[in-house]
Design a protein around this nucleic acid. Sequence first.
DNA 1: ATGTGCTTCAAACGTATGTTTCAAACAGAC
DNA 2: GTCTGTTTGAAACATACGTTTGAAGCACAT
Lengths: 225, 225
Amino acid sequence: MAQSDTVDRILDAAEELFAERGFSETSLRMITSKAKVNLAAVNYHFGSKNALIHAVFGRFLTPFSATLEKAFDELEVRCDGKPPTLNQTLWVLTESAVRMPQRNEKGISIFMRLLGLAYTQSQGHLRKFLEQEYSEPFSRFMRLLKEATPQLSAVDRYWRIQFMLGATAFTMSSSDALQDILRNKLGVDTTVQEIAARLVPFLAAGMQAQDAVLTPPAESKIPVA
Amino acid sequence: MAQSDTVDRILDAAEELFAERGFSETSLRMITSKAKVNLAAVNYHFGSKNALIHAVFGRFLTPFSATLEKAFDELEVRCDGKPPTLNQTLWVLTESAVRMPQRNEKGISIFMRLLGLAYTQSQGHLRKFLEQEYSEPFSRFMRLLKEATPQLSAVDRYWRIQFMLGATAFTMSSSDALQDILRNKLGVDTTVQEIAARLVPFLAAGMQAQDAVLTPPAESKIPVA
DNA sequence: ATGTGCTTCAAACGTATGTTTCAAACAGAC
DNA sequence: GTCTGTTTGAAACATACGTTTGAAGCACAT
């Protein structure tokens, strides 16, 4: 019943509410009442709302980035000098995410949704924090992607990485809602692992698509750009 | 200098600020001072901030959905009974977006960013508004997608559509920030048309990827699911 | 038991928000 | 010119926010 209890309760509540409603739309009063702690506790333990946001990210991103580093190490050993393939790189990433110890069954989906929000909501402080805190595993992943797709120009690769990020963050972040739809419409149940198994081939195929042409296909009558 | 001037000035300012900063992060005072109109004008002309948001979307989405309907009509005529290909369908969509008459050079990027935000920010009222206002062109697009990918199972197709939506919404919703990075890192400038031209082949390739396998590639040692 | 350092608590702070009010300004019809 | 309905304007409204305050509570070493 020491400090840690309050701190963790705040982090749990904040994580869930941020993922559900976004950062600006979640007030400290919502967080503290969900966490059943006093309003002032946030500023006492974290200093400010922005610092709380950083702490929420740090709590899952720090262990994840450690797991990822180890997984990349193993992968490179296994490949024995040769650059890993795109499929291998993507699988290592998803497996690291999926295999992270979760606080509850919603863990992965919250994790993904928060990452998506971080990218999407233009919270300057957050982007700066993430960039300077986790630049290493990020750039290592980028390097692996680069080596796995030597046929792509830097610009093409850059945009396709954004497309991958988008498909992943978006899908995982709304996977709860999407699974509901799927259950109702198609009567199927899907685990996060199965979604990942569908996602990786999609991403790999997109990454390895023929070089983008800058005009529409010949059948189209309307010229573009 | 009639009413319409004030209304349009508000819509212009709101559109730009919403796209830049999101909905909750944009106050009516920011909007009215950018539009150089009185604060009360928003509530007088629109009724509420939420109604203003709806009006902003309606102003570009209504003509867009009309353009899209016509483009789909043309496409189906051109195809003469045969279902349009996936590439054709996707191109018709992007071309309709790109060719919309723009209010200024930032038009398309604002348009896309707003759509991305609409999907991403969980503003309940907005999603409800869009769903009941523009359900027709949306389900028509879905039908075309279905006919263009008969080889996919309903579940596979469902998920891959989510992946497409995600890649698109995510990329477009952060495209300004991404373009900044690109400009700084690679010294390249990119138009929305070019992004779309890169996105479509990525999406098409992903949609047509080999059927998803539900286990990772053999090289991987770590079992999944 | 007493004092000490950390933690909790209720209350208040100042600021910003969306919205309302009501008088003034305006345009067009008579 | 006067009346009428619409639009603007400055000011205030109530509410919600993040943050600060200072007293009370607590565990624990002395």
